[in-house]
Design a protein around this nucleic acid. Structure first.
Lengths: 121, 121
DNA sequence: ACATCGTGTCGACATAGGTCTACATGAGTA
DNA sequence: TACTCATGTAGACCTATGTCGACACGATGT
């Protein structure tokens, strides 16, 4: 949840603070930052942990890890949320590549993407 | 970030909705929920992913994974945040058991906890 | 002793996002 | 067709939290 970040004000402050004029560490660590953030895994990993960083979503994937497959109404029964909220949560998990949907008549069954179990309690 | 959840209203609605009177799935999936949430790993995993679910914190641990050890001012230079915000972020990571602190004179060096690299880009 | 530097803490603010209600949609059924 | 059920969508509300400025404190240096 990165809020307003007035970078323009911080530039010269950081240069003075960390001594860019004295051969400082600002360009060095900006390069390290760009190396990390420029890697293709970074935004994917960030979206993954953001998707998991909610109690009910982590609960859903943990239940999927145990049961293999659950429909939306079953997840709703377990989480005690409204169907609107469950639908929102599962869309977040699907967008992060953590779960897949399978339509079966009126029901939509969710399943953990293979390999997504790592770090799931 | 679980906001207000009026469980009291949801009880009878869910019973009607999922058919607890018809032998329904509510008690079944409440038991599954309690099995998951009752496990000691669940709150730990939740705190871990919550701690990682911020762009700047994930950036910090990803840099620690590459460099092994960084002081607070280096993380500040890389993230371009104020020292107050960096201090807050590192406290969150330390509370989640992801990093350790080591004081060296004026500097505080942070290091990834062994085994915490999994899932870090 | 005094100044400086790195860091932690506190209080305030703004925003992201979790949640709800209300309505819409699509699939099965009579 | 009409009705029911499971799910998606839109909009609004409220809380959690990321962020900053200001201040405090310990360590180092002059």
């Amino acid at each position: 949840m990165s809020a307003a970040r007035p970078i323009q004000v911080l530039g010269e402050r950081l240069e003075r603070l960390t001594g860019a004029a004295a051969g400082g560490c600002v360009p060095r660590y900006q390069a390290l930052r760009d190396e990390v953030r420029g890697s293709p895994q970074f935004p994917l990993a960030l979206e993954r942990v953001k998707a998991l960083a909610d109690e009910n979503r982590l609960l859903a994937v943990a239940m999927l890890k145990r049961r293999g497959e659950l429909c939306a109404c079953e997840i709703q029964a377990a989480t005690r949320l409204t169907h609107a909220t469950v639908s929102h949560h599962m869309a977040v998990l699907a967008a992060a590549g953590l779960v897949t949907e399978r339509r079966d008549g009126k029901w939509i069954h969710y399943r953990l993407v293979p390999g997504a179990e790592v770090g799931i309690p």
